[in-house]
Amino acid sequence: MGYEVIAVSSNMDKEKLAKELGAHHYFVSSETANTQIQAMGGAKLIVCTAPSQSVVEKIEGALGAGGSIVIVAAIPELKINPIRMLSMNQSVCGRYSGDSRDSEDCLHFSKIQGVHPMIQKYKLDQVNECFENIGNARFRSVIVIRNDNE
């Protein structure tokens, strides 16, 4: 969509995946990441998918002038610096997603942008292995159980 994408996570484990999925930069969430993002001009938009109060509170410092934070994860409480946000013309909003219109928009966007799911297939006799690995998927892939004839 014309933006330079920066992925931020808690460790370096996800860097390869983030870049394979199109991130231009990858930073570990810390004060250093905020400094690096601010050196690039600050973030125009931060989409926070981590259900962690401390993550959102830390990443607020990466937001640039006129920028917005969109929270799409359930966070029970959030402490932000309203003076900084007012002086920098920044905003925070929440976005509930998950209804049928969101799914339709997501599928349409995926089609026109060539976004494809990562699929890991298991044969029916590997069902136990599949269920053992579900915890490792971390919403990065779709797990399909199929019979031997497929």
Rank of each mutant, 00 (worst) to 15 (best):
A7M: 10
M12D: 15
K14D: 14
K14H: 11
A18H: 03
A18V: 01
K19W: 06
E20T: 02
L21Y: 03
A23Y: 01
S29D: 12
T32N: 13
A33L: 06
N34P: 12
T35F: 13
Q36W: 13
Q36T: 08
Q38F: 07
Q38A: 03
A39M: 05
A39C: 06
M40Q: 09
G41T: 05
G42A: 00
K44P: 09
L45W: 11
I46F: 05
I46C: 01
T49C: 08
T49E: 03
T49P: 02
A50K: 08
S52Q: 04
Q53M: 04
S54G: 02
V56Y: 07
V56S: 15
E57C: 01
I59E: 02
G61R: 07
G61C: 01
L63G: 01
G64W: 00
G64I: 01
I71L: 12
A73H: 02
A74R: 08
I75E: 06
P76L: 03
E77C: 05
L78E: 01
N81W: 10
P82R: 10
R84V: 00
M85G: 06
Q90H: 03
V92S: 09
C93L: 09
C93Y: 08
Y96H: 11
Y96G: 06
Y96L: 15
S97A: 14
G98R: 02
S100A: 12
R101A: 13
D102N: 07
S103G: 15
C106K: 13
L107A: 13
F109I: 11
K111Q: 15
Q113V: 06
G114Q: 10
V115Q: 10
P117Y: 11
I119M: 09
Y122C: 01
Y122L: 02
L124A: 10
L124M: 11
D125S: 04
N128C: 10
N128H: 11
E129V: 12
E129H: 10
E129L: 12
C130K: 10
I134R: 04
I134Q: 06
G135F: 10
G135Q: 09
G135T: 08
N136G: 08
A137G: 14
R140C: 06
S141F: 00
V142C: 13
I145E: 04
I145G: 03
I145T: 08
R146A: 15
